[in-house]
Simulated assay, not measured.
Amino acid sequence: MISFTKEGTGRPIILLHGFCETKEMWKTFSKDLSTSFTVFCPDMPGFGDSPLPTEELNLETVAVWLSEWMEEQSIHHPVVIGHSLGGYVTLALAELIGSSLRGIGLFHSTALPDTEEKQKVRNKTITFLKKHGVDKFLDSFVPSLFSEQHREAESGVIQELIQAGKKTSSQAAIAYTAAMRDRKDRMELWKTFSNPKLMIAGELDMAVPLESSRLHKDFTDIYHELNGVGHMGMFEAEKESLRVIRQFLDLV
């Protein structure tokens, strides 16, 4: 069962959260965009209020679960925008159901697979989670997602995200870390996906380096870099991010 919020009327938009995040992170975006669209914000299985299924987890199975949820909710031809892990799932969903998605967006995410160095970091994360659990991991992980210059101003948001993330079990966090480590290269899918594509990148993003984001630019309908922003543009540059998303939604 997938827990979700639904707000507004009009063409459907699905906003997918990232790793150890929940649907609540989108509340400002959902409220703003719901004046023109129907906005769905699900908790992906294993996060927030959505239980972790017993089946083996990878990005492809998450995409299947989401497509089944879309059918149950009669969500047809949505625009799907995913943050980080949510972007990886968006691409897996695009691979699964293709042009039935009206448009797709990567928000601090990438179609490229993990580098060998990044895979080693994932393995260290799994080791840490097994030894110390989610709570201790989130206390250091979440602040690092924000650029240094925004951490103090966003300290309240950071604490909210940490508390929301603590709904995640160690089992789910480990399973998703492995799924991200082992994900496929979907750059060819990004290049060939026929409907409109959006990419929002952070100049100071430590999780998705800017040089990686720029490799997508020539194949993207709207590509936008947020100056001075880390991995959390929906908070670090809220108004600018919303403006770019609305600009994209005018295309689809």
Score class of each variant (00 low, 15 high):
185 D>I: 12
186 R>N: 12
216 H>E: 00
229 V>P: 08
229 V>S: 14
172 A>H: 14
197 K>C: 01
201 A>S: 15
191 K>R: 10
185 D>W: 10
180 M>N: 02
172 A>C: 11
182 D>Y: 07
196 P>G: 12
183 R>M: 12
210 L>D: 15
217 K>C: 14
216 H>S: 00
204 L>Q: 09
210 L>A: 06
234 M>G: 12
197 K>V: 00
228 G>N: 07
183 R>Y: 05
177 T>M: 13
172 A>M: 13
174 I>G: 10
191 K>D: 02
232 M>W: 02
172 A>S: 10
213 S>C: 13
185 D>S: 14
198 L>W: 00
221 D>N: 14
237 A>K: 06
208 V>I: 13
176 Y>Q: 10
175 A>L: 14
226 L>S: 06
174 I>M: 11
183 R>Q: 11
207 A>N: 08
212 S>E: 09
209 P>R: 05
170 S>P: 12
205 D>N: 07
217 K>G: 06
232 M>D: 00
222 I>E: 07
200 I>Y: 05
173 A>Q: 05
220 T>V: 03
239 K>D: 06
202 G>K: 04
219 F>V: 03
173 A>R: 04
195 N>R: 01
197 K>L: 00
222 I>M: 11
183 R>G: 05
188 E>Y: 03
205 D>G: 06
209 P>Y: 07
172 A>T: 15
238 E>L: 08
211 E>W: 13
220 T>L: 03
222 I>T: 13
195 N>I: 00
215 L>S: 13
169 S>I: 10
169 S>N: 12
231 H>R: 05
192 T>M: 01
190 W>D: 08
203 E>C: 12
237 A>Y: 06
214 R>Y: 02
192 T>N: 11
198 L>Q: 00
226 L>R: 02
185 D>E: 09
234 M>R: 09
183 R>H: 10
184 K>W: 04
227 N>Q: 06
202 G>Q: 02
217 K>S: 13
239 K>C: 08
179 A>C: 01
170 S>Y: 07
179 A>I: 04
227 N>A: 13
186 R>T: 09
174 I>N: 09
232 M>N: 04
219 F>I: 01
213 S>V: 09
203 E>F: 09
191 K>N: 02
180 M>F: 03
201 A>H: 10
175 A>C: 11
230 G>N: 06
204 L>M: 05
173 A>E: 07
211 E>Q: 11
221 D>G: 08
177 T>S: 15
228 G>K: 06
179 A>S: 14
203 E>G: 08
219 F>D: 13
174 I>W: 07
236 E>L: 11
217 K>L: 13
193 F>C: 06
225 E>Y: 08
216 H>V: 00
231 H>Q: 12
205 D>K: 04
216 H>M: 03
212 S>V: 14
239 K>S: 15
214 R>E: 15
168 T>I: 01
175 A>I: 11
195 N>M: 01
202 G>H: 08
182 D>I: 14
206 M>T: 11
224 H>F: 15
231 H>D: 09
180 M>D: 01
204 L>Y: 03
225 E>T: 11
193 F>W: 04
198 L>C: 01
